[in-house]
Design a protein around this nucleic acid. Structure first.
Lengths: 88, 88
DNA sequence: CCACCCCCTGGTATAAATATACCTGTCAGT
DNA sequence: ACTGACAGGTATATTTATACCAGGGGGTGG
């Protein structure tokens, strides 16, 4: 295998990331945000729904700027598997 | 065109990002860092040399953790085109 | 001097994934 | 009825992530 398929954890992380971005967008128009981040509205929607689980670094950087969400917060959302924190 | 080729600015940004990661690795063994970040040594080297200009978000997150470099710093390196700051 | 090892570079090759576009359809608001 | 946000499906050029190769330097030990 030359490139491993995405692990289920990464798909899960992508869904959490997308949800965080969608909630950060709040009431703003998806088209407006997408154009401000210099990505297509289709791509933004796919990221938000988690259908693009591992977007490019630059894409997330631009989105974090447009949405005003610090990257560190997105990183936490990305890494933190709720199944782990819940396992107390 | 269904996916735009990378713009020259993105390739430049990738080179800066790679250089920052390489210098952050300092004296550490590339193999050790790559395995700690759960990526292959080949991939790490390609990222450091800028031959993978836009790595996945999760990849950079893991590298920033392993190397102890805050994501915000990497984001600055990514966005800040020296040609712009120099144009005074 | 030669062998060995490690770090690094750059080339080729390939499966999987991104980013984009188009389409169908649903649902809420006006 | 119309519009806009949203979900999901298909399709495709480009890119990632991985692996392998041949080779260049810089040490260290024979």
């Amino acid at each position: 295998m030359v490139r491993h398929p995405l692990a289920p954890e990464q798909i899960e992380a992508g869904r959490r990331l997308g949800a965080a971005l969608r909630s950060a967008r709040a009431g703003r128009s998806p088209v407006e945000v997408a154009l401000a981040a210099e990505i297509s509205p289709e791509t933004l929607r796919k990221i938000e729904t988690g259908r693009l689980p591992t977007p490019a670094f630059g894409t997330i950087v631009r989105l974090s700027e447009v949405l005003g969400v610090p990257l560190s917060e997105l990183a936490i959302v990305w890494r933190t598997d709720p199944a782990l924190s819940k396992a107390s």
